[in-house]
Design a protein around this nucleic acid. Structure first.
Lengths: 339, 339
DNA sequence: CGTTGTTTTTGAAACGTTTCAGTTGTTGTT
DNA sequence: AACAACAACTGAAACGTTTCAAAAACAACG
């Protein structure tokens, strides 16, 4: 492959001049520029990014890690990140942590070795400690999406999960249901944005309607289809099946619907269901799933825009951005009133 | 960040020796190795990949381009590629061509500038010409998945689309249906693997059952949910609605199901449906969709394995690998017999 | 026709590695 | 004690750019 030296030799100018042409420096005469460009054309030369990267100490590359690239929720975020990055002449190095923190931390190290210019962590990729020691203290530019680290106050992009929980619950209560079952994800401190927040919203809605919080109505599950199925089955095996159920993600909601159907019951006539995430499946399932829609695209856009700003040298603002959510009403929550 | 020179200075050895330690050369004494490693540990040194890349003229990076990263079909392939690449110390540079050949070709150029070690093209990313002039003639190592270029006989990984079409059609014919409608994608030469092949399988099945091919029963569409909906509506507005329909992908099949339901008809009682791809939605929809399953994971694994072999210096075999498909029977094709 | 100022071009250093010919040190053999 | 053989280490070149001080070329002026 032709190098800048070949261009210099063939065109009769020095490498410095050729480089100036390549970088549109205005310190080069039009005549020279023409000549150099024509030789470049002729030799089909394209600059070696690796060499440039070494010299400029930047790679025009951003690392992105998600827990599961197969999950449409993440791939939609990634797509919006990619589009903006690409427009700004950045490419994405994209890794999948397989939902494992160990792998995730390994991957962050690999990205640092590669000298990516910045990193975007989506979801639960690394531990608080790792974040502090390997990322913050080493001054690696990075932003976080959909994970709220207690001791990190840098750029974080979240979604109003409490409001989401509130909206979903209120929607069901508005039909007149007096008890609303919950199929939650794992409940631990670190998962505030996936479970605790939604649960808080649920409590507030109950409270606003003067209804009591009943521990019995909470089934803890694991965010999978099967998990949702099992959890719903537990409800069904009970003497008092909740007539309305709020599942903390769509996959579990779909599992719950399946369980209801298999038990000879109808959605929403016997049990009304609301999910969370608005994955594409929600629209195709039958009955189509009422759910909470997150601004996935905007989440990605905000995050990459912020990261690019940081890379441009803008000081890092300590901030957590919380985006709004809304309710999407479809068939699964129906209009049946229990009064 | 510490460099190899810092390690050399601190440990009292030369850069050459430090480098030898880093590369596990056996030309260094155990004692020296220990000392060097301890300094590395102490200074928290990690080698700069960019510099190494420049010197070794390799980047340990593979570029992957898909038409739409949001499509689970592609993201599943990518995941299997990623896993194997990562195990072999390669990272993925992943781009999305937005279904546009112009963008796809642009992206390939960007990857070449970045000096990725190899490229994987999934689906219809670049034109035949571009493939020949920018990839083949420049000796860039690459493999192709799910696109059959007529003039390219290098490593290509396909799926037996004719068999897929045959299986889907035969499945419907086995219920006793005498006419099977088709909702195809765009029919053009380049799209052999998406439409023409399936159509060929369809014809063969009809033929085996002594049934005539009827042009009227083919609705050309565009692989989207809406397209499937519209196409089915056209069938329905006809005097003779086909009692069985084979849609060339699951998205169109789901759209068709929606159209049928909205017309007050039932699946599969009134119209039986078979799709193609086996996307996750197929399992969650109601009724769950019978479809043709492609070995997505194996497709990715075979492709990346081959590419890695090429990068290891193995001669490029001129070959097209065609993987097998199978039929997944679910509710949408039912067991209703029209006899 | 010198002087000054401005524009354009040059040449070499630098980025952080790997590689390899050459040097030094050690051990063994005669 | 001289030499050979081998092991361990060194030092500098090389990878292909960008950057920048310095040189060269040109223009304008008195």
């Amino acid at each position: 492959m032709a190098t800048i030296k070949d261009i210099a030799r063939e065109s009769g100018f020095s490498v410095g001049t050729v480089s100036a042409v390549l970088n549109n420096s205005n310190m080069v005469s039009d005549e020279t520029r023409e000549k150099v460009l024509s030789v470049i054309e002729q030799l089909n030369y394209t600059p070696n990014r690796v060499a440039r990267n070494l010299r400029k100490n930047e790679t025009k590359t951003i690392g992105v890690i998600v827990p599961d690239i197969t999950n449409p929720f993440f791939s939609q975020i990634i797509r919006s990140i990619f589009n903006i990055a690409y427009k700004n002449d950045y490419l994405l190095m994209q890794l999948d942590s397989n939902e494992s923190q160990r792998i995730g931390e390994d991957e962050v190290k690999a990205l640092i070795n590669q000298r990516v210019d910045g990193i975007i962590l989506i979801g639960d990729i690394v531990s608080e400690n790792f974040l502090a020691n390997e990322l913050q203290s080493k001054n690696i530019p990075f932003v976080v999406i959909e994970r709220d680290y207690t001791n990190f106050d840098g750029p974080t992009f979240l979604v109003d999960t409490v409001k989401g929980g509130y909206l979903a619950t209120k929607h069901l209560l508005d039909f007149g249901y007096k008890t609303v079952g919950v199929i939650s994800g794992p409940i631990e401190q670190k998962s505030f944005y996936s479970s605790l927040g939604r649960l808080e919203g649920y409590r507030r809605a109950l409270n606003d309607y003067g209804l009591p919080f009943d521990e019995q109505l909470i089934q803890q599950s694991d965010f999978t289809f099967d998990g949702g199925y099992q959890a719903m089955m537990k409800f069904i095996s009970t003497d008092r099946i909740p007539r309305a159920v709020f599942a903390f993600n769509d996959l579990m909601a779909l599992g719950a619907v399946e369980a209801i159907k298999n038990s000879g019951l109808l959605v929403p006539q016997d049990v009304a269901i609301v999910g969370y995430d608005d994955i594409p499946e929600a629209a195709y399932s039958f009955p189509a799933l009422s759910t909470i829609r997150l601004p996935k695209k905007r989440l990605g856009e905000k995050a990459i825009t912020e990261l690019l700003d940081i890379l441009k040298g803008q000081p890092i603002e300590r901030k957590k951005i919380i985006l709004d959510v809304d309710l999407v009403v479809r068939g699964s929550s129906g209009i049946f009133n229990s009064n």
